[in-house]
Design a protein around this nucleic acid. Structure first.
Lengths: 229, 229
DNA sequence: AGCAATTAATTAACGGTGTTAGTAAATATA
DNA sequence: TATATTTACTAACACCGTTAATTAATTGCT
């Protein structure tokens, strides 16, 4: 029974494919496929527009349906659920960023200059394509739009502040812009941590305790030296 | 009229305060305040429990009300809205992290060792208090739980990968763990960017283009040298 | 102790969300 | 033209945050 179903399905698919190119109405299938693609595209276009107007948090299927002038279930004919729509943008974002970095890299031959250039390109992408970047890295939890409004934040930063400050003062680099150094220091730790939280065990299936030893040892004993000595 | 209202308000407050300590029923007010505090506490306790069981995205007022065995509007007698509850945890998180860093710092006298210690403490906090950390830094957008599932991610990392790799090969440091260096490099840029996105113009009211010049110049020309040369 | 005033807690609703079952209309096939 | 299939819709379900109106309980006062 299961085999029969399988065969009949394949037969009908084959028959459709043949008719597609032998009928008088051979353009109909193409037209239908084109129309279906157009609806799918208009869903993505409207969604993207809504996201840039109202943010990820306020995107809804009903708003999309309204924008494309179809009823709600039509959206579900093209995407399994809301998540699937976000996933498309997520992948598009990484594609875009990857392309941008590749292009930027191609403009230089020296490896150091390449590294320099893609770093700036990465930075610019985040600020120019803010909506993409936030989606890609899961930023923008409700209630955390502006970290600056958290009073306890400054007390927390103060600890890092005074510590880094003292290390720099103990070193040789006297003309350092302290506040900026502290900001960078904190940001980089945050980056190490949050990427490790999001891309869990890699590289190489190590636990976070092992990562701790390896990554942080490098960060502290290597990178920081460049700053303070 | 405005003055009168003000005076009468103050008078009644004063009268209440006096009765509070002169009445026969002086314990009633205290008991009521205590009960109100208990409900408030149980809201926070239940919310925290729900968050750790089901994540921030699945926390709802109705679930909280259910857990504390009161009806929904009672929650709104203690918190203005859902956001206010999250804000409490947000601030609690920064308080906790700040305390942890301060305590860690106090165990050492040398500034470098202090910096070393608080870096590890920060790392551990993020992994031990994952729920806190995600809330504090707005991580965890729906659909981005595991970055590892995005196919375009690896192509994007590959660009950074090959570039950093080449720079390291060109340098003197031959025994470097390449994959780990790349991972760290990317993570640190991400940290610089995402903190700059969340704590917008500071320090010192500079635009992101100025930050770009200052922070990235340091990152590239200073920090990276420690890695590759 | 009993009544009025206040406070506490509830029910039920509003407008919104993601998602889907069932139905009517349009279209293609025979 | 009649049948089958595709297409789109209405309407519903089960949630969500939030709040107005109402009932129950408690308190203060005579």
């Amino acid at each position: 029974m299961h085999v029969y179903t399988c065969i009949s399905k394949r037969f009908f698919t084959f028959a459709n494919a043949v008719r597609k190119y032998s009928d008088n109405n051979m353009g109909i299938v193409e037209r239908k496929e084109r129309q279906k693609r157009e609806i799918r595209d208009s869903i993505l276009i409207s969604a993207w527009q809504l996201v840039n107007e109202e943010g990820w948090q306020n995107l809804s299927i009903r708003k999309i349906a309204d924008a494309i002038e179809y009823s709600v279930p039509v959206v579900y004919d093209h995407f399994e659920n809301k998540e699937a729509i976000l996933t498309v943008f997520n992948r598009q974002g990484f594609q875009l960023l990857g392309d941008k970095l590749r292009d930027t890299k191609a403009k230089h031959s020296d490896a150091k200059k390449q590294l320099d250039a893609i770093t700036y390109a990465y930075w610019d992408f985040a600020f120019e394509q803010r909506a993409f970047y936030q989606l890609m890295f899961g930023l923008g939890m409700p209630g955390c739009e502006s970290l600056a409004t958290v009073p306890e934040l400054s007390a927390f930063i103060e600890v890092i502040n005074t510590t880094v400050e003292q290390v720099i003062k103990d070193g040789n680099n006297k003309d350092a812009n302290l506040r900026l150094k502290v900001h960078s220091f904190w940001s980089m730790i945050h980056g190490l941590v949050s990427i490790s939280l999001m891309v869990p065990p890699s590289p190489g299936n190590v636990t976070h305790e092992q990562m701790n030893k390896m990554v942080l040892a490098d960060f502290i004993k290597g990178f920081i030296k460049g700053l303070i000595e």
